[in-house]
C-alpha cells in the first residue's frame, strides 16, 4: 500500500487538499484505510499523522476495518421514514442477521445507515453494493437477502 500511496501522490498531486481524494482512492483500492497506512499518507502529503487520523475519523465514509463482502446501505432519513422505513430497517436487521451499523461476524454482509440517497419520493431506499434499489418492501428484502448470501 505504501507504493500505491506514493505513486498516487506523484500522479495526482501531493498537496494537502488532495487528502480526501487520496483517502477515497485507497478505500476504492483496498476496501478500507488501515491505521498502519496513516504514516505513509502523512508523508506523501507532507502533513502530520494526527491530521490524517483526524480526517479519517471525521467522515462517515472512511472505514478503518475491512468491510463486509456485501454492503447494504439503508436510508434512515425522514422521507424514507414517512414511507415505512423504520419497519423495513427492523426487518432488514432481522433477515440479514446483523444490527444496523455493523458487519456480520462471518464478514458476509454489513448493514450501514445512510442519510438520504436523493430518491425521496420512492422510498424506502437502499444501495446494495452500490446499486440503487427503491420501494423496498418485504418481498424486496427477501431478494436482497438472497443476493447478499452469495
Amino acid at each position: 500500500m505504501e507504493e500505491f500511496i506514493g505513486a498516487w501522490a506523484v500522479r495526482h498531486g501531493a498537496t494537502r487538499d488532495r487528502l480526501l481524494p487520496l483517502l477515497h482512492a485507497i478505500q476504492e483500492e483496498a476496501g478500507y484505510i488501515d491505521d498502519a497506512w496513516v504514516p505513509a499518507i502523512a508523508k506523501a502529503l507532507n502533513i502530520s499523522r494526527a491530521d490524517v487520523h483526524g480526517v479519517i475519523t471525521f467522515y462517515h465514509d472512511f472505514r478503518r476495518t475491512p468491510p463486509g463482502r456485501h454492503v447494504v446501505k439503508l436510508c434512515r432519513a425522514e422521507s424514507c421514514q414517512a414511507r415505512g422505513g423504520a419497519a423495513i430497517e427492523t426487518a432488514a436487521a432481522k433477515l440479514l442477521g446483523v444490527a444496523m451499523g455493523e458487519t456480520r461476524a462471518d464478514g458476509q454482509v454489513a448493514l450501514e445507515p445512510v442519510y438520504c440517497l436523493g430518491l425521496c419520493a420512492i422510498g424506502p431506499n437502499a444501495l446494495i453494493d452500490g446499486r440503487p434499489v427503491a420501494r423496498i418492501d418485504a418481498a424486496a428484502l427477501e431478494r436482497i437477502a438472497l443476493e447478499v448470501a452469495a
Binding site: 498537496t15 494537502r16 487538499d17 480526501l20 481524494p21 477515497h24 480526517v55 471525521f58 462517515h60
Partner: peptide, 23 residues
C-alpha cells in the same frame, strides 16, 4: 470533489475546509 458522508459539509464554510483536505 467527492464528499465523504458528512452532512455538515453542506454548510458552506465546512465545505471549503473539506475541499482543503481538512475535517
Amino acid at each position: 470533489r467527492e464528499g465523504a458522508g458528512a452532512y455538515v459539509c453542506g454548510e458552506e464554510t465546512a465545505l471549503l475546509d473539506s475541499i482543503e483536505g481538512k475535517r
